[in-house]
Design a protein around this nucleic acid. Structure first.
Length: 737
DNA sequence: GTGCGACGATTTTAG
DNA sequence: ATCGTCGCAC
């Protein structure tokens, strides 16, 4: 099957082998920066050009819209075909497309709406309230999590047993109740998109035959991120004769907590008898950076096994900075970003990566002071903003009056005198008669006080009027009419502050978004319904790019899949990274390590690592030991930046080996680089962070932090048997080991 | 309906 | 420290 083909020319041997693999199930283990997307897109092109697969016979699945768009674009430019003939999309996008086509078979209304996370949460909460369940005992987030976890594994309430556990029994009942409510209202949550489309195909043999015949070639990106239902879904679409081609990297599996099952890679190999290809040549990073990455990830067990290499060894050493505190850390980063810019590099080619969002703050402050433009990823996205969701709720109501979630959201927004007691009456009536709130509201009118009835009637008439008014308008005019007619725009314009202004701007932006909207689905769904689905499915960017060249700030998680010439991985401290919730958990620690691996492998040319000796967390100053991951990077690859005067403690080092962070030559620091500093707590004691100690009662442990000085010195020790304890150093008979 | 103070939580997140 | 939620007073 090899042979020469122009498509294969630009590939290395391993890539070529994978792209031109025989037409049987294939698993590609693709290391970071090894040309994963390249292989996927070339495979698609190769199938079409070389093996005569029709473009329509191909299904390419990704996890994010961004990845889908990129893949579509790249396949299009490789071949000379319009991308629109290809089925390329996210798992959810494709599932949605299937349900829109087969809404009857799926027992859904044609205009079914999609619940996003927030909508789902509200519905769960409402349900709990109706059931008179105490929110302390039945935490809405947890109930929601239970429902989603079960759906993610393909389980319906009827599949679940309470195993004699009353809590579980109640959760199952709530799941059942929740699903009935969704069905009744014609709404579908994210997990339901997958599960429902799976069931429809599974249970309708003609459909299964049709899609198996049609999509013989299923390409899946980031396979290590698939959950149970996604795996089964791929299996179902492929059937016995399909040819799945999946690409993934077990070392970059960082979403276990979100339901991803890295075992799916092993399972795939086994279930499909897949041929395995490894892509280990890295084109992104220097040898130094790869060396560090390889050494870190090597500590994980149960890897499928691959080791990145590069044809271009060497490179700048990794720079390690031990900051005094988070401000000092930010100052260091700023200084290096200036240097980066002085070298003529764009700011956008520098990224600051952190473990948790809260850490962005000190960097943002420093960047503002330094007048360096930056962009923070994460946070609320466009279609998730409250004012946008309010407008969408009105739009949904004009389409589907039975949408209770939207009804609740805007019935009294802007306030129009519909109070809690009126609403309670309506809810009660809806429940008693088993009808939507909309119907109940109309039915309740005669029994309400004149005042309440008028207010409620105003709302009903408003929605009816809007629905009528927008019926024949263009999409963006519909959106504009609803924003104006509902009073939402005016409501926010009245706020007369910058927040209100921003909201009005966002609402106006929604009109623009509608104007630029083109449905990808060529069915007879009203354009407005397509737009509403799009809004749920693609929640948009956090911040619109403002065109300025800017430094990129994001969590390590959101950096996956990206690359930057200059990367700062900051906050490398025990308790932060690895996070304290993972540090002592042998199940979670490997995932933190993979996250570290992901961070390191984002860097192309220069990698800076930093940790702070003290940091304000929740208003308290915490002293944290340097991350164990620092100790896993070979000393030869690291250069410690600007070592300063004695900080009397070693880096945490599980092996007891020396490594670059260990300050053995503190006195060599040049005086003019020394910052004035206060002695940190604990400096004048022989107890060091990371030191092993023995206690007469608690046994052996490791010092993990300390507070105070002198007679008040306290140390926290993590004992192997007894767990974490705070001890007064003066009294506890701690013995160094 | 709005405003204020108490209270609690605070890893990561796409669709 | 900070942010969101909740209950209660005006």
């Amino acid at each position: 099957m090899t042979g020469s083909h122009p498509l294969l020319d630009a590939l290395n041997e391993a890539q070529r082998a994978a792209v031109s693999a025989p037409l049987s199930p294939t698993l590609v283990l693709a290391g970071a920066g090894s040309g994963k997307t390249r292989v996927l897109t070339h495979r698609a092109a190769w199938l079409i050009e070389e093996t005569g697969v029709a473009p329509q016979g191909l299904l390419a699945v990704t996890f994010t819209n961004k990845a889908a768009t990129e893949m579509r674009g790249r396949i299009e430019s490789l071949l000379d075909i319009p991308g629109s003939t290809l089925w390329v999309g996210t798992f959810h996008g494709i599932a949605h497309r299937l349900l829109r086509r087969h809404w009857r078979e799926a027992s859904l209304p044609q205009t079914f709406q999609i619940l996003d996370n927030d909508d789902q949460y509200r519905l769960v909460r409402k349900l709990l309230k109706e059931q008179n369940l105490d929110e302390q005992r039945w935490v809405p987030r947890e109930v929601q999590g239970f429902i989603n976890r079960e759906k993610d594994e393909g389980r319906r309430p009827k599949h679940l047993q309470d195993r004699g556990d009353p809590t579980r029994r109640e959760l199952i009942r709530l799941y059942d109740l929740y699903q009935r409510r969704c069905d009744q209202q014609g709404v579908v949550d994210f997990a339901e998109l997958l599960l429902r489309s799976f069931e429809v195909i599974r249970d309708q043999p003609p459909l299964a035959d049709f899609y198996r015949h049609r999509f013989r070639h299923v390409l899946v990106d980031e396979f290590q991120d698939t959950n149970g239902i996604q795996y089964d879904w791929v299996k179902l679409i492929c059937g016995a004769s399909g040819v799945p081609f999946v690409v993934g990297d077990d070392d970059q599996s960082i979403y276990r907590w979100r339901g991803a099952r890295v075992e799916n890679m092993q399972n795939f190999r086994r279930d499909f008898g897949a041929t395995v290809f490894k892509l280990e040549q890295n084109y992104r990073s220097t040898g130094v950076i790869l060396g560090a990455a390889n050494e870190v990830i090597r500590r994980n067990e149960d890897r499928l096994g691959k080791e990145l290499w590069t044809a271009a060894p060497g490179g700048e050493p990794i720079r390690l900075y031990a900051a005094f505190n988070e401000r000092d850390e930010a100052d260091f980063v700023i200084e290096r970003i200036r240097e980066h810019a002085r070298n003529g590099l764009p700011l956008a080619s520098a990224a600051v990566l952190y473990r948790s969002n809260a850490q962005s703050r000190s960097f943002e402050e420093a960047l503002v002071n330094a007048r360096i433009p930056y962009r923070v990823y994460g946070g609320l996205r466009f279609f998730e903003r409250a004012e946008i969701k309010d407008a969408l709720a009105y739009l949904r109501l004009t389409q589907t009056r039975s949408d209770d979630g939207s009804f609740e959201r805007v019935v009294n927004l802007p306030t129009r005198g519909i109070g809690p007691s009126t609403l309670d009456r309506v809810r009660e009536l809806a429940r008693a008669q088993g009808v939507p709130l909309w119907d109940a509201a109309q039915a309740a009118l005669p029994s309400l006080s004149t005042r309440a009835a008028t207010a409620l009637n105003n709302f009903i008439e408003l929605v009816e009027r809007l629905a009528l008014e927008i019926d024949s308008l263009e999409l963006h005019e519909q959106v504009r009419a609803v924003i104006e007619g509902s009073g939402l725009r005016e409501h926010h314009a009245r706020e007369h502050d910058t927040r209100g202004e921003a909201r009005v701007e966002n609402l106006d932006e929604l009109v623009n978004a509608a104007e630029g909207f083109h449905p990808e689905l060529d069915d007879d769904l009203p354009l407005l319904s397509s737009f509403l689905a799009h809004a749920s499915l693609e929640s948009g960017e956090t911040q619109a790019a403002d065109g300025r060249d800017s430094v990129q700030l994001m969590t390590l998680h959101s950096a996956k899949g990206l690359e930057f010439p200059t990367v700062f991985v900051v906050g490398l401290e025990e308790g932060l990274f690895p996070s304290e919730r993972s540090a002592f958990d042998l199940e979670k620690l490997p995932e933190e390590r993979r996250l570290c691996y992901v961070g390191i492998t984002r860097a192309m040319q220069r990698l800076y690592l930093s940790h702070a000796e003290s940091r304000r967390i929740y208003g308290r100053t915490e002293y944290r030991a340097p991350s164990r991951f620092l100790g896993e990077i070979p000393a030869a690859l690291v250069e410690e930046v600007r070592p300063r005067l004695s900080v009397s403690r070693p880096l945490y080092d599980p092996d007891g080996a020396r490594h670059p962070g260990h300050r053995r030559h503190a006195s060599k620091a040049t005086p003019d680089t020394i910052k004035p500093r206060q002695p940190a707590a604990g400096e004048d004691t022989p107890i060091r962070l990371g030191a092993r100690v023995r206690h007469p009662k608690f046994g052996e442990g490791v010092v993990i932090r300390y507070e105070g000085n002198g007679a008040n010195q306290q140390v926290q020790v993590n004992f192997e048997q007894a767990g974490q304890k705070w001890l007064m150093y003066a009294y506890a008979k701690l013995e160094a080991m």
